[in-house]
Design a protein around this nucleic acid. Structure first.
Lengths: 226, 226
DNA sequence: GTCCGGCGTATGGATCGCGTAAAGACGGCC
DNA sequence: GGCCGTCTTTACGCGATCCATACGCCGGAC
């Protein structure tokens, strides 16, 4: 998880870098609004912690500029405690607003809160569950960072399920979409391919948590409950 | 845009209702944690404004219960200013945390911020009653956020009833739609499956409130009595 | 009070569907 | 032609589901 911290105070920058790094984040930094926008575009962070009191560009202008091309969560940190400042920042596109001084634990919790809601706001239409990441566009599956080799049929089944998260996909739908309209009755294919998919993707293939069977009807893909 | 406001202080409740209504929101209210959970399930609001200091259920427990089945944004309002309270609430699934007293303009801005990101959850039209949510499109039933496992026959019966809320469904209709046109006289099947459905979905299976028997005629599904 | 029809519940056996393994068939590639 | 990966087909064990039956309860009719 990458964090961009933008603040003009080198001490705060340093302190935040240490704290965030200690909590497992990759930290990049910016010292003014111009740098912040460049870094946001270049580093593609998962969340931006933005100080409004930076010289040069106005803080709200930075937010609006960044919001022009990305939905990356923005958490504003500011010395201003007045309501209008908060309202302006939030309405410009910030996701949260914390006033200085703040407890680091609270900042971390708020970072978790805003990133929790935008897991797929990263780049690419990926679906993640457990330690698995499915990139539908790239036709690629990774597990714990490692490439997972899927056969064409396995991919076709998985894709159909992943494209309908939480929804039940009937056996007939799967069969016709993968094997063609002639196949309408389960010849046992599905059981086999769901088996191999579970073996490759589930932590415990004998107790699947994401590729669920609905007996007599079909199958269901369930992403992480969080 | 619907807002659920949960607070045990009637004055705050009233004030928020007036303010939010004036800004174009449809407001529903709850006075304790239990009510809040029920209202969240029944009214399906677009955002929940939740006071943590309510009697009865712990605020964090309310958040976790609601998070069990929906991603509706939750904005916590609390008198507690300590860090641990904020961290607990945010990590439980809250999207924002505002301490009393707060400026109404700020609250409104924060509501806009959390709702801006919500993509109006893609789960289809649902029918809710009690702590049960039936998603006809996804063919899924949840109770208090937990998945309820229904057999194909159980689902077929439930679906037929839920699709005709408040209307009486005759035994013959149920039999022919579930078991085929040959079955026209009650062989005792319906009694059995209504029994299991009540066991799985009713708060008190011996005193059903939603799956009602009409003696000699059929059955009737009744959503929550207002 | 007694009878009776309709309903709810429990129980046991037959059946169905699923998961798994293994082996043969097919096609691409060297 | 031989090798390899993938797909198809078949078979078996096991658990869940469904079916069939029986019994107890309740309210209404008489």
């Amino acid at each position: 998880m990458r964090v961009l911290v933008a603040d003009d105070d080198p001490q705060i920058l340093k302190a935040l870098r240490i704290i965030l790094t200690a909590h497992g984040y990759d930290v990049s930094t910016a010292r003014d609004g111009r740098e912040a926008i460049d870094a946001a575009a270049h580093d593609r962070p998962d969340v931006i912690v933005l100080d409004l009191g930076m010289p040069g560009l106005d803080g709200v202008a930075v937010i609006e500029a960044v919001r022009g091309w990305t939905t990356t969560p923005i958490l504003v940190v500011s010395g201003r405690t007045d309501t209008s400042g908060k309202v302006d920042a939030l309405d410009a596109g910030a996701d949260d607003y914390v006033t200085k001084p703040f407890a680091t634990e609270e900042l971390l919790a708020r970072i978790r809160a805003v990133t929790r809601r935008a897991p797929e706001a990263a780049d690419g239409p990926t679906v993640a569950f457990g330690d698995v990441v499915v990139d539908l566009a790239a036709r690629q599956v990774k597990r714990a960072g490692q490439d997972v080799r899927l056969t064409p049929t396995e991919w076709a089944v998985l894709e159909q399920l992943v494209r309908n998260p939480r929804r039940l996909v009937t056996q007939q739908t799967l069969l016709t979409s993968v094997w063609g309209p002639t196949h309408t009755r389960d010849s046992g294919y599905l059981r086999i391919y769901l088996g191999t998919l579970r073996k490759k993707l589930e932590a415990d293939p004998s107790r699947p948590r994401h590729l669920i069977t609905e007996p007599g009807i079909g199958y269901r893909f369930v992403p992480d409950p969080e």
